[in-house]
Every structure is written in structure tokens, then in C-alpha cells.
């Protein structure tokens, strides 16, 4: 357990040793703040739905930027050779890095808590959907992070890891809007595969266990595949 927390701790601090964390958080806040508030006063409704609807797309670019270096950098620099000879199980390495990324996503969402606090002062905010939305955002971020880690383990090149990761996350987020082009027989299945509809349910305050299971299974599959990729390198 101590190895896991040590890796988690180090990876989280690493984000702040380089400019990555600051840049990504800044970009995220600017983009989300801009798009959310540009229509907020026109709609004149005291809720956060618009904000949460942005997340599947924005996260699709932001989260892979956070995960791209996690494994590919270690492999290209060769420090994975060092990790590979430490008495640490691959699952602890992967989980430690994943949790560090999840914590950074939480840190990134933290300043946005100002939005509901402000909205609550000017209108009558229903806190249920807001809390559900933040929980959903963490689940969504976790699922994207697991996908990002998988693509990071597949390539020595961080840029490739980022682009492939972002493409996969974007496809998951957008799948729901592509249903129109699919044969009717598989529409239900494809809709279930996409992250969008699951996230919307949670963001509306509907905490369905199926949606939670969906996100957790993506996390599990992503991390497990990462472990298999790393083991195949031995």
C-alpha cells in the first residue's frame, strides 16, 4: 500500500513541478467559464446544466493532456526500467498514477464551485443536480483518465498518446449525437456505449446505478488494459 501512496503522491506533485497543471487548469477554467457564462444570463435560469453539458467535450481534450505523459514519458526516458526493477506491482504503479490524475481533475473542478455558490446568491439553486453533476464529472474524468493512460502506455510519444486519447474520449462523448447515422437495430447499444447519455443522467441529479457502473467499468477496463500493455513489455 505504501508504494501506491508514494507513487500517487509523487505523480500529483509532479504535475505542479512542471507547468502542465497550471496551464491545463487555466485553459479549462477559461474555456468552461467563457462558454457557460456567455449564455447563462440570456437563459436566466439558476442552474448548472449548461456547465455540466460542456464537460464531456472539454474533458475529452483536457484529461488526455494530463495523462499523456504519465506512462509514455517514463518509457521514453527509460525511467520505467527503474520502476520495473523496484519491488512494486504494476497495478500499484498504474493505480497510483491514475489517482494522482483524478486528484488533479478534482483540483481543476474545485475553483468552479464558485459558480454554484454565486448562482445560489442571485437565484434559487437546486443543489441536488449540482452535487450529482460534480460526482458525474469525477466519474467522467476518471473514465477519460483511464483511457488516456491506456493510450499513454501504447506510445512512447506523448503527442501521439494525447491525440489518440483525445480522439477516443471525443468519440465516446459524441457517440450519442451520431445515433442518427446508425442502423436502428444497434442504436440502443451504441447509445449505451457513449458517455454522453450516462453523464447527462447524473448531471440532472438522477443517480442511476447503471450509469455509475458504466463509468466504473470504463475505468476498470482502461486500467486493466494498461496493465496488460505494461506486462507485455517485460
Amino acid at each position: 500500500m505504501s508504494a501506491l501512496t508514494a507513487i500517487w503522491n509523487k505523480e500529483f506533485k509532479d504535475y505542479f513541478l512542471t507547468p502542465i497543471a497550471y496551464m491545463v487548469i487555466a485553459v479549462f477554467l477559461v474555456v468552461v467559464g467563457w462558454f457557460f457564462f456567455s449564455t447563462f444570463f440570456i437563459k436566466n435560469q439558476a442552474n448548472m446544466q449548461e456547465f455540466f453539458q460542456l464537460l464531456p467535450i472539454v474533458f475529452a481534450f483536457v484529461v488526455p493532456a494530463l495523462t499523456m505523459r504519465l506512462i509514455s514519458e517514463e518509457i521514453s526516458l527509460g525511467s520505467y526500467e527503474l520502476m520495473g526493477t523496484l519491488p512494486v506491482r504494476p497495478r500499484h504503479i498504474i493505480l497510483g498514477k491514475f489517482l494522482a490524475c483524478l486528484c488533479l481533475i478534482a483540483a481543476m473542478l474545485l475553483p468552479t464551485l464558485l459558480y454554484p455558490l454565486c448562482i445560489d446568491r442571485v437565484g434559487d439553486l437546486d443543489w441536488g443536480p449540482v452535487l450529482g453533476g460534480y460526482l458525474g464529472a469525477l466519474l467522467l474524468g476518471g473514465a477519460y483518465a483511464a483511457i488516456g493512460m491506456l493510450t499513454s502506455s501504447l506510445s512512447r510519444n506523448q503527442i501521439v498518446a494525447f491525440i489518440v486519447g483525445a480522439a477516443v474520449c471525443f468519440a465516446l462523448a459524441y457517440l450519442q449525437r451520431m445515433l442518427f447515422f446508425m442502423p436502428e437495430a444497434i442504436q440502443g447499444f451504441v447509445d449505451y456505449l457513449g458517455a454522453g447519455s450516462h453523464f447527462e443522467n447524473i448531471a440532472q441529479g438522477v443517480l442511476d446505478i447503471r450509469d455509475v457502473i458504466y463509468f466504473l467499468s470504463i475505468v476498470f477496463l482502461g486500467l486493466y488494459a494498461t496493465k496488460l500493455v505494461l506486462e507485455s513489455k517485460e
Binding site: D14, L77, G78, S79, L82, T85, P87, V88
Partner: peptide, 14 residues
Amino acid sequence: KARIGYLPESIPIY
């Protein structure tokens, strides 16, 4: 692994 100390050829540390 806990009983082994290893110095790789090119020391790839953080």
C-alpha cells in the same frame, strides 16, 4: 526485487 539493487546502464532518473 526487494533483495536486489540495480544500477541501469544509462541512469534514467526523474
